[in-house]
Design a protein around this nucleic acid. Structure first.
Lengths: 353, 353
DNA sequence: CTGAAAGCGCTTACAG
DNA sequence: CTGAAAGCGCTTACAG
């Protein structure tokens, strides 16, 4: 026998009709075949090293057992664990994932979407949602089973899985207030991104609820969830809000940028400035100082998103929104504010205004 | 028209036979069809929003236009850029990637391999090679087109793309020697991994070539390319080799572990100890101190691996080994050794022996 | 230049 | 319980 064995090869070897071989090989239809025949077919399949051709099966069943995953930027440390979780959850149910980076670029995003559609994916996991997202709206109009991971659209189109940001932000604000901070700044992520938007909203809410004055708690919007944007936002804060003693960064990458800018400005973290991140990405604990942040299990998030999607594909009704528990991880980057006067560095920085 | 339009729908709308519609739609066969007919078919396809079913085409052509990518750990920051590069190179040629995490686990690895085979992938990119790798040997025996990315097997089975480690290590050793270091330690990655093995070999070679004494340049083998292993290896070095003034870490993650362990031991980097990493992963420049390391373009590496694979699939002969250029990026973590006596901290650390 | 037909490797109603 | 046949949506030699 040359080449990869097919069902016909197995049927011939087992001396049965291909239809019978197919039924014997398939768990769900096996009961329709006599045990003796099943035995012969299985033995033949085993002997030949037969693996069903998933492409042919997909064509016939009109189900590719394949899922498209759209990631905005795999280089952002929070997404790899999500991808892992997705695979973890897909694989035991016989599904496989196509993964594409979209780079927050409409063209690349659409290209990936269409390539995956042409490949007959049974559904999509979008980890790249913006609050107003044309492509996702389109997927909704086309009735394609989909789930949103991490970020969501303003309109409730598809089921959505994310960490409980509101709870995370409350824990952060509470932690800082308990340390004695009264002037806390927030560097928010882009506001067309639901995470950036929601965390900023929660921040404004909880800061007020914990008795801080709105004026003392400025929100600066970063251009992106990255270190550069975090750095330049920090410079703005140091310049315009010298009374601030704690910065809550919209995510860990922004926080890394904050730490860098503080170092550059000679502002010591945590003595002169506390810093909090969000996500607890892999290296957060290895930074100097190690980063206080809110942990969300990306793997769990991905796994849950995949589970919801598979249920949706199978026609099972499920909850539309899953908020995963989050946990504040206190490390070295937060401390009580320095009592009394501003540090020398902060004074100098303020004097330069 | 309900549901996704098929070729038959297009043919009917254009009033031609499906075979003709197929030829008109396909660039390579279009010249066999009269321009008028091509026009009608294209118009009909456009009007219906027709996209060819890649699964059906794959079945018929015996070519899925699909590639399997095996990544040992997507959470390791060097792999996401590689995946990006792979997609970058695949997509314009009409290919799409299945991606799986293997976690250096034989079982998961094999499961992914078989799932991808069942999906009729046209080839594999293995970024998870160990020097002696059963699964890759098996792929070779089966004659499956494949390319190794980053790591390789000892036996030359498939084409291989990687950074020029030997050159990178030479640049590192040269840099440290020029700074005045005479006692340099290397924390090598696992020796069943070609990168870990080759870098250690190169280190031993160049250290000698640059006139350092073998005895002064110990090599400690880390259990894994991660921070924990880097940390414990550092403790060993501080304990057993107090004269060492520079550590070359097998990769950046190990280097992060080194920095942490030094901080914990009160050894100042770079004043008391220089540290060099390898790979220039995304956060290397944001560490404190920022990390001197060797930059390899993961994206370029992935793109090249995909290109080699597609050529192999197309039956084009290509070079078997591509070494990409590397570049030493000097940052804050390296400096001349402190002259004269050991620092107090190092003395104390040595005294504790 | 176009049509008719076979076939890629499966699954699954339909008979018997 | 098993076989015969149709068909998923394409492509492509083969005629004409």
């Amino acid at each position: 026998m040359v080449g990869i064995p097919t069902l016909d090869d197995v049927a011939r070897a087992a001396q049965v009709h291909p239809g019978t071989a197919s039924r014997a090989l398939n768990e769900e239809t096996r009961s329709k075949v006599s045990p003796a025949t099943v035995g012969r077919v299985l033995a033949a399949a085993d002997r030949l090293g037969y693996t069903p051709n998933a492409v042919a099966r997909g064509l016939r069943r009109q189900r590719s057992m394949t899922v498209g995953v759209l990631i905005p930027d795999l280089t952002n440390a929070i997404f790899p664990p999500i991808v892992r979780g997705i695979e973890e959850s897909l694989s035991p149910r016989g599904f496989t994932a196509f993964v594409a980076n979209t780079d927050n670029d409409d063209y690349r995003e659409r290209r990936a979407f269409e390539a995956f559609r042409a490949r007959q994916v049974d559904g999509f996991i979008f980890a790249n949602a913006r609050r107003d997202h044309g492509l996702i709206q389109e997927a909704f109009n086309l009735g394609i089973p989909s789930v949103l991971a991490n970020r969501r659209t303003d309109k409730s189109l598809f089921p959505w899985v994310a960490g409980d940001d509101d709870d995370g932000v409350e824990q952060i604000v509470k932690h800082l207030v308990e340390l004695g901070h009264t002037h806390v700044a927030h560097i928010a992520g882009p506001q067309n991104n639901s995470a950036g938007f929601a965390r900023a909203e929660s921040f404004r809410h909880f800061v007020k609820q914990h008795g801080l004055r709105e004026l003392d708690c400025p929100v600066v919007i970063a251009d992106a969830f990255d270190t550069e944007s975090g750095g330049s936002a920090t410079k703005q804060i140091l310049h315009h809000f010298p009374a601030v003693t704690a910065i809550f960064a919209g995510n860990d990458m922004i926080a890394v940028g904050v730490l860098g800018a503080l170092r550059e400005a000679g502002v010591h973290c945590p003595v002169d400035m506390s810093v909090v991140g969000f996500n607890d990405m892999p290296l957060a604990k290895d930074l100097a100082p190690s980063l206080t942040t809110v942990a969300v299990s990306g793997q769990q998030l991905g796994a849950m998103a995949a589970t919801l999607l598979l249920d949706e594909i199978a026609g099972v009704d499920r909850e539309r929104t899953v908020l995963l528990p989050v946990e504040l991880v206190v490390r070295e980057s937060t401390a009580p504010p320095r009592v009394g006067a501003l540090s020398l560095a902060r004074q100098a920085s303020a004097a330069r205004e």
